[in-house]
Amino acid sequence: MEVESSKTQADGEYWSTGFCDCFSDCSNCCITFWCPCITFGQIAEIVDRGSTSCGTAGAIYVLIAALVGCGCIYSCFYRIKMRRQYNLKGSDCGDCLKHFFCEVCALTQAYRELNNRGFDVPLGWHGNVERQNAGVAMGAPVVEGGMMR
């Protein structure tokens, strides 16, 4: 008989910073306030592990914001995805409410979370992978001297 874990998303880890700690990083807070599409695009690229580019995600955010008047409809789903990837405390409904009522705080918290997990968010996914692999030789191993017998 296999025992299933009773651990749910509500039992996960706490976020590394508070929801209202927006002003701990004034530059990101200002960028997010004036152009949330930039911060969102950077977050989405890392959460999607490079399968969505920062520019594409940001453009979709702007398009949704222009058509519906509320880009948070798109961004709350990335918060949910990120929360699940890192097993962070919260709920789907709570994520959407946070994005609806304070998009700046929600985006800057996600940005800080990724930074605190070791990502240089402005570099994007591929830039972070290159940075992580710096100094690691890629390709087949080098065999010196050939066969000796």
Rank of each mutant, 00 (worst) to 15 (best):
V104C: 11
L123D: 03
T17V: 09
V136W: 10
Y14W: 14
Y86R: 14
E130I: 06
L88A: 13
I80M: 12
C30L: 13
V136P: 12
P122L: 02
F23A: 05
R83A: 06
Q9L: 09
K89G: 02
I43L: 10
R112A: 05
C96Q: 08
C29D: 05
E144I: 11
N115F: 13
S75W: 02
C96I: 01
F19P: 01
E13N: 03
F19I: 06
G18E: 08
G94A: 06
T52K: 14
C70Q: 12
A134P: 07
G127M: 03
Q85V: 11
D11Q: 13
Q132P: 02
A134H: 11
D120R: 07
A137Y: 12
K98T: 07
L67K: 06
G139A: 13
F100H: 11
L67E: 09
W125V: 06
N116P: 02
D92K: 06
G90Y: 05
N87Q: 15
R149D: 11
D21E: 07
W125F: 14
S51D: 08
K89E: 11
C22W: 03
G41D: 00
R117K: 15
V136Q: 11
A59K: 13
I46A: 06
R49W: 07
C93D: 14
R112Q: 01
H126M: 12
F101G: 08
G139K: 08
G135C: 09
A134V: 07
V62L: 14
E2M: 14
C20V: 15
L123N: 08
C72F: 00
Q42P: 05
T17A: 10
V143R: 06
R149P: 09
C72H: 00
I73R: 06
G146T: 08
N28Q: 11
V129W: 12
G50L: 08
N115D: 15
N128V: 07
G12T: 04
C93R: 15
V143C: 07
V129E: 13
V68S: 10
D120Q: 08
D25P: 03
C76W: 01
G41L: 00
I60E: 04
